[in-house]
């Protein structure tokens, strides 16, 4: 009967309830991580020294930082930076989705156009594109709306008038550039949707367009949305490149104009960094929620929605 004796003691006759036999919780001295404590002290010491030197630096005029931080000129720049980011991301996301669908299309003409577009916009630096669009009037001095080679024209205008506004250049340079990158993200999202989904939809008689719109894209969104959040944060900072156009519309452009006249370079750069960090922090927090919302996929959100709908249906049935 050696095997019977080898079993757990509680298997014995008249064994009490398991809660009564639960042994005392273990109280042990935890391993001391001396290394962590020492490194933490060293890091705190060095960081404090760095911050102190920065705050106490005679080269940073802190009152100037405080003076400019909430100036209407700066606040207006922050607002315009956010607006530009938003507009360019909308252009990028919509354009990118169209490009991704074109790229994956069975139509070789559409696929080829998308490929060339992405090749051009990903292959040239965005900074160069901004300057290029800003000076497009050098290449085409007049802008015509009409049919090429036919002489038919609906009208024309000076190109300089069109690209005079930073917002136009921003949409052309940043929006079109973003579309090329977004296209690749959307394409990855579309490819990530199981091929069985398309087969099932086809066997239900859905056309390729309908399948893309109703079945594939909504599922691809779960993959695309979080990466688009990341692109938005990147776009916010890329708008600072528009400063090269002069005129001072967005945040950095305005500060650059100010410090080129007052030479308060360091304080104003600190103002710029503070604002970019603040907005990026807000966006990062937003992205965490967005990722939680879409990354979970099939958890709480759907279950709650389903419960609500079932409740409404039951109410209708009884009412």
């Amino acid at each position: 009967m050696a095997t019977a004796q080898g079993q757990s003691p509680s298997a014995g006759a008249g064994s009490p309830a398991p809660t009564d036999t639960r042994p005392e919780a273990i109280k042990a001295i935890p391993v001391r991580h001396w290394g962590r404590w020492i490194s933490a002290v060293v890091v705190i010491y060095l960081v404090t020294a760095l911050i102190y030197s920065f705050i106490k630096s005679p080269n940073v005029d802190w009152p100037v930082v405080g003076n400019y931080l909430f100036k209407p000129l700066v606040l207006r720049g922050v607002a315009l930076t956010i607006e530009l980011t938003f507009v360019c991301m909308v252009v990028g996301a919509v354009g990118g989705t169209i490009l991704a669908v074109m790229r994956l299309s069975a139509n070789p003409v559409l696929s080829w156009i998308a490929w060339v577009y992405i090749w051009f916009f990903r292959g040239t630096p965005v900074y160069v594109q901004i300057i290029l669009w800003g000076n497009i009037g050098v290449l085409y001095s007049r802008f015509y709306a009409g049919l090429p080679f036919t002489g038919l024209s609906l009208g024309s205008t000076n190109t300089g008038v069109l690209v005079n506004h930073v917002i136009v250049v921003a949409i052309l340079a940043l929006g079109l550039n973003e579309a090329a990158y977004a296209a690749e993200l959307v394409r990855a999202g579309i490819i990530s949707v199981d091929a069985g989904q398309t087969e099932a939809a086809s066997s239900l008689g859905m056309s390729p367009t309908l399948i893309m719109r109703r079945i594939v894209l909504p599922q691809a969104m779960r993959v695309i949305i979080p990466t688009m959040g990341n692109e938005t944060i990147s776009m916010l900072k890329t708008t600072s490149l528009l400063a090269v156009l002069g005129g001072g519309v967005e945040l950095f452009g305005r500060l650059q104009i100010v410090y080129s006249q007052t030479f308060q370079i360091m304080p104003l750069l600190i103002v710029a960094c503070m604002w970019y960090l603040a907005v990026t922090t807000v966006l990062t927090i937003g992205q965490i929620y967005l990722e939680r919302y879409f990354g979970k996929g099939f958890g709480q959100k759907e279950a709650e929605a389903a419960e609500k709908r079932a409740g409404r249906r039951a109410a209708r049935a009884h009412g």
Partner: peptide, 17 residues
């Protein structure tokens, strides 16, 4: 697609949306 719409198909992996 029109032809397929009159033929139902059930898959091994369900393929529900």
């Amino acid at each position: 697609a029109k032809q397929r719409s009159t033929i139902g198909m059930v898959f091994q992996r369900f393929n529900l949306f």
